[in-house]
Design a protein around this nucleic acid. Structure first.
Length: 567
RNA sequence: GCGCCCGUAGCUCAAAGGAUAGAGCAUCGGUCUUCGGAACCGAGGAUACGGGUUCGAUUCCUGUCGGGCGCACCA
């Protein structure tokens, strides 16, 4: 796409009084393919050229008309509409995808590192559907950034410290009826829920929880032992889920990791003259930014969330020397991030803009807020398991023509379930809240992950049945239908889509692109036979199909969704 | 009370300041002796409300209403 835009810009720029870069950037896609493939709106030039925009468009038209890849130029009002020749588009994009393969749309290493902090579940609580967004948005961003030449460091900032551990420890000591070796997360959850319930009427329990947490901080052997076991069994579940989701982290540095750095951080803040005392606590005043103060140290001397986050941020900058640090954390914590980013900036002005909060809307239940405390949660593992079950049902009903080999079913069901769940999560703009709905989360029809996977699997099937590799090249003039053209225009658009997704930190761009491409291909192959066409047409269509298969596979990979060959 | 986010079709969501606001689900009607029907085609149906900026606003600014979230010793 850039190639065509640049060439058009080169001939138009001198006559439009714009730089080539600006002109190329102004080129857009018309709303209807019948109008053309690229459009240049002339409104903005009316002032500088002191001419009616329609007249400008008419004046510019002849310059584009001469280009060899241009099939037709039309002036529609103030728009200059350009139709590219299908042959030119095909010879531009199909060989490139063939050559680049899964690297299509990628960029060379740029020697910049990005730390991505994502997933970060709270330990001692089960992994809920609420953790899916951070996990998959973070993973998708990592994949996008890698594709675009960044080096990424995935960090799982486990919530493995804090008073909630005090609650579980206190609860376990009070009611625990299992040996330590036999506790698992759900058992811990029961304790946690019961503790919260009883603490409502019994204030002494809260004090007990605080006391256990103090013991833990003080290095008490028993508290330490409990903490280690609770942490490990929770992590076990999380790792199981990450394995299913195909998510990996370079570092599992949780909050506890920073415990021995907290005093340094506080000293550093003090040295910078940022700490002031307020109501017995140590805070950084942010009045000048019209924000509430950032609490660093409690009146009893204990540290807080912000202290640990500051320590982690400093550690990351010093250890990884990243260009940016992304925090994929829910929108409710926005204020917290604003505050502690400002503190970082005060500590070192060069850090301004280095830290980014990638916020997202939360999952809610139709019945109300999701909260582990009340036991009002949907477990991630249940969603995955039910997804697999539903995939199996659909697979059994489907008339698939016996294309699946023995023993593949289980794996495919898992892959398709993931496709439904993960794609459903990523295809929506991350800033919006989501009301969790079983039917919607496990939808396999229409605008869904399975639809994209299905289209890709059908392409794989066609290529298998063809019994031949798609040829390296073909007579591109055979790709003459509007459906083929539409598909190719989308293929051309893929690289800029990935860039836009990475720039906006919104994997939903890529997800929606994948749907568009799958739909466009669906139209094409329902209307035009590939294998049954005459050899020249067949070869060209095989190339086109292979290219779509490649791009869909890349898109799915960028989203962290498996790509089944058959389903 | 103050602050942030979100209001688009019956429902769930799209839309790089651009042309006639697109999909899916659901509903109704079609394709089908098929390269695998988790498919394809068609129909109806929408920008919460009022100002402003702009040649042009779903998009930017502002006010109202509605929903969500947050606002000091939790994370």
């Amino acid at each position: 796409m850039q190639t065509f835009k640049r060439k058009i810009a080169a001939v138009l720029a001198p006559h439009a009084g714009l730089t080539e870069e600006k002109l190329a950037a102004a080129l857009e896609t018309p709303p209807d393919a019948a109008m053309g493939d690229l459009a240049f709106p002339c409104f903005a030039l009316a002032k500088t050229l002191r001419k009616a925009p329609q007249a400008i468009a008419a004046d510019l038209a002849p310059h584009v008309r001469g280009l060899d890849f241009v099939e037709e130029v039309q002036v529609a009002g103030a728009y200059l509409n350009v139709r590219l020749s299908a042959r030119a588009v095909a010879s531009e994009v199909l060989p490139r995808i063939r050559r680049d393969g899964i690297a299509y749309g990628s960029q060379p290493a740029r020697g910049e590192r990005v730390v991505v902090d994502y997933s970060s579940p709270n330990i001692a609580k089960p992994f809920s559907i609420g953790h899916l967004r951070s996990t998959m948005v973070g993973h998708a961003l990592v994949e996008h950034l890698k594709h675009l030449g960044y080096e990424t460091v995935g960090v799982n900032h486990l919530g493995d410290w804090g008073t909630q551990f005090g609650m579980v420890m206190a609860g376990f000591k009070l009611w625990g009826d299992r040996p330590l070796e036999r506790v698992d997360v759900r058992y811990l959850l029961d304790i946690y829920v019961r503790f919260n319930k009883e603490a409502k009427d019994d204030k002494a329990l809260e004090e007990l929880a605080r006391e256990w947490f103090r013991k833990l901080e003080g290095g008490d052997a028993e508290a330490r032992k409990l903490w280690e076991v609770f942490r490990e069994v929770s992590l076990e579940e999380a790792r199981r889920i990450y394995a299913r989701l195909g998510v990996e982290f370079q570092h599992y540095t949780g909050e506890s990791f920073y415990n021995d750095r907290l005093s340094d951080t506080i000293a550093r803040l003090k040295q910078a003259g940022l700490l002031v005392e307020s109501q017995g606590a140590q805070v950084v005043d942010l009045e000048a930014h019209k924000l509430p103060p950032c609490l660093i140290q409690k009146s009893d001397g204990a540290t807080l969330y912000a202290t640990r986050d500051l320590s982690a941020a400093i550690y990351r900058v010093e250890t990884f020397q990243p260009a940016r640090v992304l925090y994929v954390v829910g929108a409710p914590q926005k204020l917290h991030f604003q505050q502690f980013f400002l503190v970082l900036e005060k500590l070192d002005p060069a850090w301004a803009g280095k830290f980014v909060h990638v916020d997202f809307g939360h999952y809610r239940l139709a019945e109300g807020k999701m909260a582990t405390r009340t036991g009002n949660v949907v477990f991630m593992e249940d969603v995955l398991d039910r997804g697999v079950e539903m995939a199996r049902q659909i697979m059994e009903q489907a008339q698939r023509g016996g294309d699946l080999e023995e023993g593949q079913d289980a794996q495919v069901c898992e892959q398709v379930a993931l496709g439904a769940i993960v794609f459903g999560d990523l295809s929506n703009d991350r800033v919006k809240d989501v009301v969790f709905d079983w039917e919607k989360a496990l939808d396999f029809k229409g605008d869904t992950g399975p639809y994209v996977q299905y289209t890709r699997a059908r392409i794989a099937s066609i290529l298998r049945k063809g019994g031949v590799e798609a040829p390296e090249s073909a007579d591109w003039s055979q790709l003459s239908t509007p459906e083929e053209k539409a598909v190719m225009m989308l293929l051309l658009k893929f690289p800029q889509t990935v860039e836009a997704a990475a720039a906006a930190l919104k994997p939903s761009f890529t997800a929606n692109y994948a749907l568009d491409l799958a739909r466009a291909f669906g139209r094409f192959y329902n209307l035009h036979p590939v294998l049954k066409s005459e050899p020249a047409v067949r070869d060209a269509r095989l190339c086109l199909s292979a290219a779509v298969g490649t791009v869909l596979a890349i898109a799915l990979r960028l989203l962290g969704i498996p790509v089944p060959e058959r389903m």
